[in-house]
Each structure stands twice: as C-alpha cells, then as structure tokens.
Amino acid sequence: MDYPIEIEGLTKEYRDNIAVDNADLKVPAGSVFGFLGPNGAGKTTTIKILTGLISATSGRAKLFGEVVTTEISPDLKRNVGYLAQEPVFPPQLTAMEVMAMVAETYGLQGMEWHDRAEGLLQEFDLLAAANRRVGAYSRGMRQRLGMATVLLPAPPLMILDEPASALDPQGRYEVLEMVSRLKGEATVFFSSHILADVERVCDWVAIIDRGQILKQSRLGNLLDEYTGLHPGYFVRLLDRGSEAAQELTRKDWVVVAVASDDNGVTVRTTAEQYGLLQEGLVAVLVAKGCTVTELRPLKPDLEEIFLALTAKKEGVEQ
C-alpha cells in the first residue's frame, strides 16, 4: 500500500463551524508525517474521523484503501495504533492489565507480548508503577503509557495526536527519539502544534489551519521551496573573511546586510535580487581575495514557513 492514509475532500461541519474544510491528504507508507496546525485548526477532528470515532459530513477518509466509517472493522483497526491527545484508560485496571488488554485485542499470541510489554514499560519509566491502577496516574504517565500501548502490537500505521504535549523535556526527547526510530518501519501520522518537534522527526509535513490543508510536502522540499523567505547565503571564508565580506555592503551591489561571527558570514539581499546574488557572490568574494570554503543558501525554519502560510491565508480572506 503506497498510502496508508488517504483523505479526499473531507469536510466536517458542526452546527456553528466547519472543523475540517474540503481537506485532501495522502500519507506515504513508511513516512513520519507531521500534521501541523495551531490549536483548533482541525487536527484532532481529522484524526477522530480517521479512527472512526466520528463521521465526516462529506468526502472520505481511507485507511489502507478502505473507507473509514464509525463501523470500522476490528480487522482494519488491528493495523492501526492510536494515541489520543489526552490518553485515558479504564481507571480500575493496572498498567500491565491495560497492556494485556491491548495484546489480547490485537491478537498477540502466547506470552511473548508480556516480555515486550515489560520492556516498553521499562523504556517509558513505568515498570515500577506497572501494577498500580492507571486511574491514579498523572497526565504525563498516561501519555507514556499511551505510547507503550501503541508500540506494543507494532501496527503498520500509528496515529499520534500531540504525543509529547504533556511530557517533561526528558520524556519529550525520548518519545521523539522513539518516533524517529520508527521511520521506514511503520507509517507515523503525528499531529502537533509544536513546530520544533515536527521539524526534528518528520520527513513529510502537512499544514492545516482553520480546517483547510494549506500545504503538503516533503519537509526538505518545503524548506527549499521557501528559501525566498530569507534571501541570502551563509559563507565560510578561509582568511581575512569578515573584513572583506563587510566591504560588500559599501559597494552599490545587491547585498543589503552582512553579519559575521566566528562561524562565518551571513549575506542577505532582497527577494528580487536573490538571483543576482546567487550568480555573482562567489566571483565578488574571489575578486576580493577571499577563499570560499563553504557556501549555502539561508533556509527558513518550519515556524517561519508556517507563519508565512497562515499569514498568506489570512491576507486572502481579508
């Protein structure tokens, strides 16, 4: 299956608002797909439709080629692990009993699951509390247990709704590392409003705002595409670098700002003159007697792209 998740013209309307508005999305197999948007953008609603908790007003969502409804079959669900934004478990069960229930519903045979469950609880620092009822767990503990329950059956598709939102920095690091390691082994659909998390672990990204998908792309391609947001270059020079580079602005050329530090020199221009800088920068530096050891275009980070995209949408609406 090329696309474990496919969404076509998906719309979810409530009485007074449109939570998801004609969204199209394809999540490639084996990717860690960041589903990015501010709070209230429609991420959780989309995920609830994907998991069969609610139904779409129009359009359709497919998992492994099968259209999802509220009557989604257990066989299809066996291929999907889902972690809710605020995971809740049957409060009278212990963590190990929750893991046993997951193992049983996913059809894990024998006692192999038990060792695996213990390993996961250990990894998420829950083994000492494994026999405590989960009703007494903190939010962070429940989120870690949620990750463990998703990973236990090792389904080919994992849908994680803000999986690190309740964790401390250490827990957050561990969860993101775990997600990173899944790349290529499973498809991970990862919703978040924390751009740094998405940028760190995802290889594909979709940006949703006010129910509309604004962009879907490989993360690398997206960063390349938006290079124009910060037209300029980072240059590393072998000797007398910074003094020579500082002279660039004194000439009547395309450079509008130069900043240097111990690492190198950042040369900025305008979007209109970026092409001229691209063509002429090395020649100018060489003419000044500089030896260029590194030259790379400045790239915006995901946050800047996100803000640019959502600002553009606001502009269109106004």
Binding site: G52, L53, P74, V80, A84, V88
Partner: peptide, 15 residues
C-alpha cells in the same frame, strides 16, 4: 464523558 469509550473503541474491538 471521560474518554475511556474512545480509547476502547479505537482498539480492535467492535462497538
């Protein structure tokens, strides 16, 4: 109300 139903129903369990 408390979300347990959503958790159970997103496991391979029929309604």
């Amino acid at each position: 109300e408390n979300g347990v139903a959503a958790w159970v129903l997103t496991r391979p369990v029929s309604r």
